[in-house]
Design a protein around this nucleic acid. Sequence first.
DNA 1: CAGTACACGTGAACC
DNA 2: TGGTTCACGTGTACT
Lengths: 233, 233
Amino acid sequence: MDNSSCSDQYWPESESHTSLSWALNFQDSPFLLPTNSCDVTSFQSSYFPTWSQQFEASASRSHSEAEKRRRDRINAQLSTLRKLIPRSEKMDKAALLRSVVDHVKDLKGRAKEISNVLNTPSDIDEVIIEEEEDSSNSIVVKVSLCCDDRPELFSELNRGLKNLKLTTVESNITSLGGRIKCIFALQSINNSVCTIHSLKQSLRVLLSRIVTSPSTSNFRIKSKRQRFFLPPT
Amino acid sequence: MDNSSCSDQYWPESESHTSLSWALNFQDSPFLLPTNSCDVTSFQSSYFPTWSQQFEASASRSHSEAEKRRRDRINAQLSTLRKLIPRSEKMDKAALLRSVVDHVKDLKGRAKEISNVLNTPSDIDEVIIEEEEDSSNSIVVKVSLCCDDRPELFSELNRGLKNLKLTTVESNITSLGGRIKCIFALQSINNSVCTIHSLKQSLRVLLSRIVTSPSTSNFRIKSKRQRFFLPPT
DNA sequence: CAGTACACGTGAACC
DNA sequence: TGGTTCACGTGTACT
């Protein structure tokens, strides 16, 4: 379902677990242990070669190694979090995570504060064709769209609006975090051929295509950041 | 140094570790174990009462209990993080933390994008008295201050400016996340008594006092969110 | 019965 | 010397 959970870029070599360290570790084990002390370096090869071979192939070894990899994966993320959170160098794991929680809450709150005031793009693709006004015999349509940002978006938009014989009399464009929100007031150049209804329909087709079409450039690939704004669940 | 790291509000009762569960756990231990099976519920009291009492008072018990508390503290923070990050219900710990890293990076990036465009308040207290312009015989001073937001700030500011015989001809105020940034253009009402130099000095005293003085209301106590914007290290 | 993920108790290190 | 944190290998459950 979500195999990205295993694709962490950080994979440290677990070079610390030599056969020696394993042998040392198993000295604590209550079984198979000779009571007389012996040279640890030659312990495995000279005293218990068969046991060593058995252990090399045992499930216990792979189990503990897998567990070490798991721990390393978690700790790697924790240390990158530590770099992101200021003044967290000396915190223990619980305090660090608590600080991360505070940070995320704070940042989310700020983003919400801003989006309450500004026309910040949300994570939901959106096309709104809101109202039409008559100003001195010409048709004016107010339009709002929100989608992923991409370099060729405006050329597509301009080409489409040109085809519909529309000119923009007012625009408010906000691009943020790879998302873009555009609000336009569009005026029909010659209000001869098309009715308001057909104009709005054509506009809806155009804008829906622009909003849903993927980028033809490699722009989106470069921006792999996860979106923050989400539909209220 | 940082005893807040131990003051997590989440303290689950470790009710799972009864004496029974401990006895059960020690059945796996290779020592002290009778080969014949016995009633587990009466195992502790009838067979090994002295060992049980020893164990109750041993350092090993408090050690493992402390370790359990530590694990619980970490896992509590992880589960609150899970609530903050969407679509993270089925992720394992490493994937969750990776998602948190992405989120924090994304949110920080957004905040930076916004602060590049807007006059967002930073985390550094700041008083700037920038330049003075002459417009038709009166003195105009441009002023910028950034500090913690609090309800009584503007009344203090207005009172101080009134005392200096200054009126605001232009203002740009941005409040975000408990911080506030104000940019004023101030005009001297009667440019008779004071020179530009003494006016600027009086202004600096006034604004520095306002920036550094703590809130007299309980406003700051309620807003305990950690600041996000920080001085570049 | 592979592989994976989590909780557990323990040894070691640091105050 | 207890208290606390971390890494470790293991038991266990799920797939």
